[in-house]
Simulated assay, not measured.
Amino acid sequence: MADHYEVLGVSREASPDEIKTAYRRLARQLHPDVNPGEDAAERFKLVTHAYDVLSDPEQRQRYDMGGDSAFGGAGAGFGGFSDIFETFFGGATGGGARAGRPRSRRERGQDALVRVDLTLGDVVFGVHRDLEVDTAVLCETCQGSCCQPGTQPVTCDICHGSGQVQRTVRSLLGNVVTSQPCTTCQGYGTTIPYPCSSCQGQGRVRARRTVSIDIPAGVETGLRLQLPGSGEVGPAGGPNGDLYLEVTVEPHDVFSRDGDDLLATLEVSMVDAILGTSVTIDSLDGSVDLDLRAGVQSGDVLTIRERGITPLRGSVRGDLRVAVQVVTPAHLDPKSRALVQELAKRTKPGPPHLAEFHPGLFAKLRDKFKR
């Protein structure tokens, strides 16, 4: 008689959990439903008997002291069979196996993903889009029944509508009834003798359709918007999945985004910077008048309230921040140069020098170049 520990492949000091794990691993390999060979059936008997003995503390102690003779050989006792049955079938033993329910042909459709390109103006105000989507839609011929018009599914002759077939397996405890999906009807309990010719019995077809969507203001690149129930229709006319819109915002030539604010750079001539001036700029939602004070400096930031972006979850728009950049002429005609030299004599500017550190100046420059 083989040693029970050798049969299970464990040491004599193995813990109960190690014994149970070894038994389940071997049982999965050797069970008659999985391995119909005669040698496997004999090994399955040995494995099960070894587990019965070693899983019971009292019997294991007696076995360790006196061997296997006290237990009537390999055919005695199969209390551990419930473990293997639960492993394979998850149900009770014997001839009364619970019949499963047939599958439903109607299933939820898959989600769909569509990428949409937006301009910065779309982001500021929000936009309405009609999107063309290539997806699965309900078959207009059969309306999701999967059958040719005038016909209907019929009860499966093999499983009689249960979607399951049973077979009896001879085991050491007698006959064990197992249930498996019916291969004739694929577990649905019905068959379709005359599938719809338009959808080949799927209840849905591929087609292009239009989805209307109002994209809110404040979205940004990478954001996904969910449209529940706007994805693909499911098999047999099942409920639709969801549609996701992935947003990409195209760069703008003039404006850039900083949170809910818009940034821009205003180039000002040296003369206008010295004397001051008024200027009209075109923002994304119309013209805006700006007054530049005399002596405005490069890096100065002019803030125009509520001309930025409406936040995704909010109502107060951000600001438009305009950074001033004074443009120094690179080339002057002799007359202009003489005028500048005369100005230099009158203003008597000092030579260039390092000034006192002003943190605010760097903050302005950071805002200016953050584009």
Rank of each mutant, 00 (worst) to 15 (best):
A2T: 15
Y5G: 02
E6S: 06
A14D: 03
P16D: 00
T21I: 09
H31F: 00
D33P: 00
D39K: 10
A41F: 12
R43E: 10
E58N: 09
Q61V: 12
R62N: 08
D64I: 08
M65R: 14
D68T: 10
S69W: 12
G75I: 05
G75N: 10
S82F: 04
T87P: 07
F88T: 00
G100Y: 12
S104M: 01
R106E: 02
R115E: 15
L120D: 06
L131R: 07
T135R: 11
L138Q: 03
L138P: 04
C139A: 03
C139M: 03
G144L: 01
S145L: 07
C146N: 03
C146L: 04
C147K: 07
Q148D: 14
P153Y: 13
V154L: 14
C156W: 12
C156K: 08
C156T: 06
C159N: 05
H160T: 12
T168Q: 02
L172C: 07
L173T: 09
V177H: 14
T178W: 13
T178R: 14
P181Q: 07
Q186D: 05
Q186P: 01
Q186K: 05
T191P: 02
Y194G: 04
Q200V: 09
Q200H: 13
Q202G: 05
V205M: 02
V211E: 05
G218M: 02
E220T: 09
T221H: 07
T221F: 11
G231E: 08
L243A: 10
L245Q: 05
V249F: 08
P251R: 03
P251E: 02
H252G: 03
F255V: 01
D260H: 13
D260Q: 11
S269I: 01
V271E: 14
L275H: 15
I281K: 03
L284D: 08
R293G: 03
R293P: 05
G299I: 06
G299W: 11
L302H: 08
R305I: 04
R307W: 05
T310I: 04
R313L: 00
D319M: 01
D319L: 01
L320Y: 01
V322I: 09
A323F: 07
Q325L: 15
Q325R: 15
P329R: 14
A330G: 12
P334L: 12
A338L: 09
L343I: 08
G350H: 06
E356Y: 15
F362Y: 15
L365T: 09
F369Q: 07
